[in-house]
Simulated assay, not measured.
Amino acid sequence: MPRLYGFDNQALTRVRAEEQQVVREAVGRLRAGQSQAAVAAWMTAEGHRGTMGGEWTSMTLGRLLDNPAIAGLDRDPVSGELRETGREALITPEEFRWLQQRPGRPGSARSAEDREPDYDYWLSGGLALCGNCGQQLTGGRTSARTPSYRCPATFEGRGGCGKIRITASLLEDHVAEHVLGELMRPGAQAALEQVQAALAAEAEQVRERIADMEKSRTELAEPYAAGQLSRSAYVAVDQQVTASTKKERARLRFLEQAVNVPLGGVEDLARWWEHAPSSSKRGLAVLLLKRVEVRSARARGVRDVDDRVTLTWHSPVAA
């Protein structure tokens, strides 16, 4: 089976930077109004080829852009709803959702009637955690098709407890209420700008660590190719570097959500929040909150979340 364009391996744990840039440029051209056929023609004219060496067509480009893996997502096998995987991504989840909803989009193999409308779980991606085991909560629908956050029993090879689930609207409304309360406090914007600067500095440090890891991976290949390093030793170190790089990239994606929030020029953050896109809400929540921990309900069916959700804030001003 050929690899997915933009990735180095079948596990989708390593991105090919040059192919990622091609996909990003293609998406940018689509968002600027070019047709899918025109973008495919541009890719071919520039000498870009698919993983099997073929030229790009509207159909082959459409299949790539219809694959949620390019945005670090997959579809729930029951509901067909998008959910985050924590894997590497070529584009953002928001860009992928735009691709699926864009005007004039060629029909995909799976019609919208076959699946539930996608729900944007804006507390996913590392902010909402299981209060029992510390695992990241992921979005997904219940058997009754209600959007919820849950602790997965397994996640990327690491097991969560699988015991926590909370209705998405209950948790999101609870967090939004407290976030809005903090945004209306005097000095909130100045405090947020300080946190944003600190997180931007951390993000740069993470990028440097990722670059060092990738450099070490390249340097490791030379003694292996020269027969100075056994295959077992090479594989063991490569797996360790891959795991560390993956963890750092996940942290970088989390930080970038906050770093990219457009605070400048916003006079009334509370009013801005009401109409902000989910990506901006997520980023602003990351600026304010270190984590949102969810514990088990007192009893089955209890909808009160005050006693089962703990918010940990970044700044004393927002505490």
Rank of each mutant, 00 (worst) to 15 (best):
R3M: 02
R3W: 05
L4A: 09
D8G: 10
A11I: 13
A11S: 13
Q21L: 10
V23D: 06
V27Y: 10
R29M: 03
L30D: 10
S35I: 02
A45N: 08
A45S: 12
G50M: 12
T51I: 11
G54Q: 08
L61V: 10
A69T: 13
A71L: 13
D74R: 00
S79V: 00
R83K: 15
R83G: 12
L90T: 02
T92P: 08
T92S: 15
E94S: 15
S108C: 10
E116L: 09
Y119T: 11
W122T: 05
S124Q: 08
G126Q: 07
G131D: 03
G131P: 07
G131Y: 04
N132I: 14
T138P: 01
T142L: 06
A144P: 05
T146H: 10
Y149R: 04
R150H: 12
E156S: 12
G159E: 15
G159S: 15
A168T: 01
R185Q: 11
P186N: 00
A201E: 14
A201R: 11
Q205G: 14
K215M: 04
L220F: 11
L220P: 05
A226S: 12
Q228A: 15
D238L: 12
K246C: 13
R249W: 04
N260H: 15
V261H: 04
G264H: 14
P277S: 09
K281P: 06
R282C: 02
L287V: 02
V292L: 03
E293D: 14
E293I: 00
R295L: 02
R303G: 06
V309N: 05
